[in-house]
């Protein structure tokens, strides 16, 4: 397939094919494999994630999206493979260092810190806190000023994510959708250069989804961060992605701007099986849109 006009400037001229090289990738993956028993969960030959853009990662259930996140962020170890983040090799780096280096992920199954308040959840996220050192922790005047700054930043994010009224509640009392919001806000406290969101909209109500989408776009447009997000709702994917990567059975089977993905036969095959044609995917989209209209 040939490049088209709807892609952002950074990706102009990039071919729409799996494993294609990008002009300025923030993350480059090579020969990454992870098997669970006989299941090849991830089997990626080459993948580049563009800097400063939003990349949608799609694929049917069990395609290996979460496993890929786990590997790249140091939460799981690959059988083999190399990858660089921001030009530096990131393979074998422990998860906490990956986060400190600027690649921060959220979890598909949210991990709210239940018996801590919503505000504390956020404040935890801030990096390089002086008071997190055991000896300095004993001398509050050494970290109070920074703590106040962290609190201000946390409250700002809470307001942005409409969680400020829950500020002093235990995070364990939040609803599923609120936990998604909390986790995304908390990840932003780290000030990452690359945010990896695993199904950030799952369980979030449609009205809120719109504002969440706005936040994700802001990450790119206002704060200049790179975003990778996993999402099953194709409307969302097509709405905000600059680039879409489709995984199936661990492999990258298609890449391209959103417009090219919906019509890609490999993607349709992966989602619906080889017997269906394009109209089935379009029909599915129409059905979902109708359902959303009702809600």
């Amino acid at each position: 397939m040939s490049p088209d006009a709807t892609v952002p400037a950074g990706l102009a001229g990039v071919a729409h094919e799996p494993g294609v090289a990008k002009p300025d990738p923030i993350l480059v993956v090579d020969g990454l494999r992870r098997a669970f028993g006989g299941v090849r969960a991830v089997d990626v030959d080459h993948l580049e994630i563009p800097r400063g853009l939003i990349t949608g990662l799609i694929g049917p259930n069990g395609a290996g999206k979460t496993t890929l996140f786990n590997l790249l962020t140091g939460f799981d170890r690959p059988d083999e493979g190399e990858w660089t983040f921001d030009g530096r090799s990131a393979a074998g780096v422990p998860a906490y260092r990956v986060a400190r280096d600027g690649m921060v992920r959220t979890f598909q199954l949210t991990k709210a810190l239940s018996r801590m308040t919503v505000l504390e959840n956020l404040m935890l996220g801030a990096s390089q806190q002086r008071g997190e050192h055991i000896l300095r922790a004993l001398l509050p005047w050494g970290w109070r000023t920074q703590e106040a700054e962290v609190r201000d930043r946390a409250e700002g994010l809470l307001a942005r994510f409409k969680l400020d009224h829950m500020r002093d509640q235990f995070a364990g009392t939040l609803s599923g959708g609120q936990r998604k919001l909390l986790e995304m806000a908390r990840a932003l406290m780290v000030e990452p250069s690359l945010v990896m969101l695993d199904e950030p909209m799952a369980g979030v109500n449609p009205a809120l989804t719109q504002s969440l989408l706005g936040h994700v776009k802001d990450l790119r447009d206002v704060e200049g961060r790179s975003v990778v997000f996993v999402e099953h709702d194709m409307d969302v994917v097509f709405d905000i992605s600059d680039w879409v990567v489709c995984l199936a059975e661990g492999r990258v089977i298609a890449e391209g701007p959103p417009a090219s993905i919906g019509a890609n036969p490999a993607v349709i095959d992966a989602y619906l099986g080889a017997t269906h044609d394009h109209s089935a995917l379009r029909e599915e989209r129409r059905r979902r849109q109708a359902a959303r209209g009702d809600a």
Partner: peptide
Amino acid sequence: TLMRSPWGRVLRSIREDEDAARSLGKNV
């Protein structure tokens, strides 16, 4: 004193979910 400090906050986050703490850059 320790538990009211950011150090104590990290400790409690580990009790709640150590993977979450890791994902935020804490050396669990």
